[in-house]
Design a protein around this nucleic acid. Structure first.
Lengths: 163, 163
DNA sequence: CATGAAATTAACTTCAC
DNA sequence: GTGAAGTTAATTTCATG
């Protein structure tokens, strides 16, 4: 509720915590010209309203034993009406499936998948096919390098570029 | 610097903060069976060593005025040796470019781009081409729905599936 | 109805063991 | 690594515009 009445301060706060959600309310308050308690109240509301969906640590893949990433295009059976819903429920539980987008174009789904090595990816791909018969074909790109990583969303009307 | 000697406790901590980095050290300590101060010391080291690269708020795109997402495949001039480095530097400053991966396959780069609407995306795509002559062609998929979003990385050897 | 100062509560940091 | 003491930050309360 009250989701689309973000004022200048809310937008400023979102810009800051999208880059670093460990900034203290005190530091944010000083930066945007508001009191500490006002910032805390707004942060609480932004969380409760789901505008801030989650606050997460971004971990360096290189040290996790799961260094590889694959970007996978998938074609699904269009006549299977709830294929997408089924896949969503299943994918949500698979920690190796990091992101999934339903798209227009040559493929229907694009997934970002992490794996320990190519053999491990082969196992994951086989599991995806086995668990989701509505998926007809998969087309895999191997990620050689992360050029940019993040989930930052600009706020329309703000100067969003990094300080 | 001690990047690949993560013990069981470090891995447990990373699993938790990847899902919620606002959990208190106290709560984490109780969950994994360690003292509060030990958890805080480990968290500090994980941050300093860059194993935790950042801690970020994930914001709901629907309320930001930038609701659309596009997944863009790009072909680059292979004989332009530092095309990738140039693009990286440029893309890092563009808030609408959320993620970029250098990949094998039919395209060389895959980017995830946010935009206010299709006209706005057209402007962004034109800017990408204009600013990066090393990009020869772009192939765009429009995201109709986020099926799964995140940057979670499983830790090999852990039972990583959500509690 | 939102703000900001003061007071309370809780978290984090430091240190001796 | 642990637990207590000291420090800092987050939260709640409340008077104010």
């Amino acid at each position: 509720m009250a989701t689309d009445q973000l004022d200048r301060f809310d937008r400023d706060i979102l810009q800051i915590v999208q880059r670093n959600c460990q900034r203290t309310a005190d530091a944010i308050a000083e930066e945007i010209g508001l009191s500490t308690s006002a910032v805390q109240r707004r942060l609480k509301r932004l969380r409760e309203d789901g505008i801030i969906k989650s606050e997460i640590a971004v971990v360096d893949r290189k040290v996790t034993g799961t260094p590889m990433v694959f970007i996978v295009g998938m074609e699904i059976e269009r006549d299977n009406y709830d294929a997408l819903a089924k896949f969503r429920v299943w994918a949500e539980k698979q920690d190796h499936i990091q992101q999934v987008y339903y798209v227009t174009g040559a493929v229907d789904l694009i997934a970002i998948v992490t794996a320990q090595d190519v053999e491990h990816y082969d196992d994951i791909a086989a599991a995806i096919m086995a668990e989701n018969p509505q998926i007809r074909r998969m087309h895999t790109n191997v990620v050689l390098r992360d050029v940019k990583l993040g989930l930052f969303v600009p706020l329309a009307g703000e100067n969003t570029n990094g300080s």
